[in-house]
Amino acid sequence: MEKFTGITSQAIGLDMHHVDTDMIIPAQYLTQIERNGYGEYLFQRLREQDADFIFNDLRYQSAKVLLTRSNFGCGSSREHAIWALMQAGIRVIVAESYSDIFYNNAVKNGLLLISIEAKIINALIEKSKQAMLMISVDLHEQFIMTSTGERFSFDYEPFRKACLLKGQDDLDYLLEATR
């Protein structure tokens, strides 16, 4: 697993609740036996259906921070959803909440999921639509900071934080614990 300490990047806002993993990576792209090659199919169906879908907007091409609403990643347990997001460049998601399995899958791949109040998310998504919004994420100190100068702290499980900062994955931990 890759280490994660911090990042500064443009943010992309996906203004939807209950984004399921079928949307993130449709089933038809799961007939692979590799971990790679999913990034280009991220949100493929939504991108095909709607030319104005935010992930079709080239201005956000380099965004590494995804802003979205509640219950993100619900539905199928496919870890391909995490792989697709990361291979498309996403390193951090800031949302109201996540589905359980998605959350678990993310921490095992070094994708940082931050939960923040709905009100703040709303404001951030709005800003990201109007102009380029840069967000800095500091995992050590557990805060995010916007290019417009706001700073929000977030909670994060200490165990998971240590894993991310060190790039340590669960398997080593389990092998040691069950030796």
């Binding site: 347990s77 995490i82 399995i101 669960d170 398997l171 389990l174 069950t178």
Partner: peptide, 30 residues
């Protein structure tokens, strides 16, 4: 697979996991 809860019908604690966790169970049964 997320519909693993099906097996809960038998009074088992059954849940879906991702592929990384499948590796963990293969290697350590935990």
């Amino acid at each position: 697979d997320s519909h693993t809860a099906t097996h809960g019908a038998f009074g088992a604690l059954a849940f879906g996991i991702g592929t990384s966790e499948v590796t963990h169970v293969l290697a350590t049964s935990t």
